[in-house]
Design a protein around this nucleic acid. Structure first.
Lengths: 339, 339
DNA sequence: CTTGAAAAGAGGTACGTTCCTCAGATACGG
DNA sequence: CCGTATCTGAGGAACGTACCTCTTTTCAAG
């Protein structure tokens, strides 16, 4: 039988109230008594029953997710996964608010959070780029005592409690290994992205550059095509390079903009050309199915949102986080292991 | 506020006891009354609080995991993951028994389960090959009212409640795509395994054969090397083929026996040869790190055991299973996305 | 010593559900 | 119309924890 607070009280020779005070770190207990209680906890191997605790507390976790609004397919896919997770038993005792903010307005995150009553919130998961404004906003959240989780893009110097997502540098290295393995002979490689300034693209590129020489010796990486969220520009640039470069062996799409890329490739694609992109969305899924894309580097959106929810809850319940469970894997998805 | 049984009772115009009887499908309620209660449940969107329910029930889930004993690295890795999951908050209210059975004795599973007092058990997860004896054993478990989950290898015609693991045919197809993509020119491909008779090896081979022609046109698949769990035999056969066949472009290790394979390759390996195996274990991890292995097809053991625990619990709590969360992905692991 | 605050004890209610008992109501065949 | 079987109601205890109030003890400063 698992020990309860009553067992602890008996074992420590104190009352239930004192055990409760120690367990919940409330004041009014002498140091020696605290030690006695903690000793009993150790000896009996007591672990608080989080379910009973929440029940008693009548606690409902109120979490907010801040997601980028607008075009990106990935954000939409993630949003859908979030709503699915929210409908599942995994989310019981959770009240969810989803806030979408423009990824282009640096003040949007701060303003949106400012418009929220923080006392009506227990935790926030943020999928945003790190900016000074975001740093301030996170600091405000922490001051209000909220749990803060960075989602997809880390916010390392903000004091967030946890990061749920993949290591972008490692993702870039993985792309390099994949492309190096898949191309039949060393030739030219083109990197494309919508915005090179974003932290994720930057880090992926870093990892890619660091690893490509080892995995594709002799290959040449062409100057990056940056489309600045303009589909026409992306299509245009890709078409030009693909047609003018017979030696082009691979394309690495580091960020968003896959719809335009695939549209352009559709008319210019030749057999044997390796194309690697990120994230599984309706667009990239179709690309895999038709063979326009060779492989994808993916973080499972379902895993991301469930992980974020679990981590937020664990932080609030003061329960240890199962790191292994919350580690998001860098997945390689090809047509045959797409399910 | 989430509706409670009290709200349902009020809404349906019945007493709390009746709501409880309907909710738990106990006898003694007229059909019309059942309908009234279910209508109220629908209207208010009531979902039972599984935590409070378990608390009230004082229920502790007693689950048993049946794992293969003996050599296999994979089983050991899975066992370790199970113990880790068991120590985590994920497993609270769960009492775990691990039973190891010889994978070679067809009666072992049945005998081991027969030695257990089934009334002291709520659910069983089985990682075993399907045999007539196993079918009977599972039938006995179901008769005793237990939840039964097939782990890693499915037991499709036994009446198990759920299967946690990957589709082996799809895994074989993935191996084919991977090898087809990674080899530089069509040549010879060698398949090796310890035991071709096992369902998993069989199905992987099926998928591999069905897909290899499409992904490696012109390649030739050599007769399979079967080592019958004899490391010397494996090493011997592999060394012979590798040395006598200069055109050997790839090796696909379909099952266990990777330690012997890698030992043999260590002395015979040449650059550029593609080697794909299954499962992430200390042995294959080292193989990836040294470059002896090109890629692995992996099912995450942590995910497997956590999934099995969650599914068993959901089955017992009569709570819907989040299929997306429990779907085990066919992961492709290379050196750079090995974390 | 006395005083008084800090520390500890005692006992209670509540959370949402399960499950029990006992009593009262309804239905139905004879 | 009665007896009996089936349904339903009312109420309460329990699960393990949180948190509240009220009392009692401890202990050091005055």
């Amino acid at each position: 039988m698992k020990p309860t607070v009553h067992d602890i009280a008996r074992e420590a020779g104190v009352s239930l109230a004192t055990v409760d005070r120690v367990l919940n770190q409330r004041p009014g207990v002498r140091a020696v008594t605290i030690a006695k209680v903690q000793g009993a906890v150790q000896r009996l191997g007591y672990v608080r029953d989080a379910h009973a605790a929440n029940l008693a507390r009548g606690r409902r976790h109120r979490f907010a997710f801040v997601l980028p609004s607008g075009a990106g397919q990935f954000a939409k896919t993630l949003h859908a996964a979030l709503m699915e997770a929210y409908a599942s038993p995994l989310a019981d005792r959770i009240e969810l608010t989803v806030l979408t903010v423009s990824p282009h307005d640096p003040h949007a995150v701060a303003n949106t959070l400012k418009s929220q009553d923080l006392s009506k919130l227990d935790g926030v998961a943020l999928m945003v780029q790190e900016t000074p404004q975001v740093r301030d906003a996170v600091a405000a959240l922490k001051r209000a005592g909220l749990a803060v989780v960075a989602l997809v893009s880390d916010l390392p110097s903000t004091g967030r409690d946890y990061f749920v997502g993949i290591n972008s540098v490692a993702a870039g290295r993985t792309a390099a290994q994949l492309i190096g393995g898949l191309i039949k002979e060393p030739a030219e490689i083109l990197c494309v992205t919508n915005a090179l300034r974003s932290r994720d693209s930057l880090e992926r590129r870093l990892g890619f550059d660091a690893a490509i020489a080892a995995y594709a010796p002799g290959a040449r990486v062409l100057p990056t095509v940056e489309a600045f969220d303009d589909p026409a520009r992306m299509a245009d640039a890709v078409t030009r390079v693909a047609q003018s470069r017979p030696a082009l062996a691979a394309i690495y799409s580091m960020g968003s903009g896959n719809a335009a890329l695939l549209a352009a490739l559709g008319s210019a694609r030749q057999g044997g050309r390796v194309v690697v992109a990120h994230e599984l969305t309706p667009v990239t899924r179709a690309g895999l199915a038709t063979g326009a894309l060779s492989a994808l580097i993916v973080q499972d959106v379902g895993h991301l949102v469930r992980s974020a929810l679990r981590v937020l809850r664990s932080l609030r319940d003061d329960v240890p986080i199962v790191a292994a469970q919350e580690r998001i894997r860098i997945e390689i998805v090809m047509r045959e292991n797409l399910q």
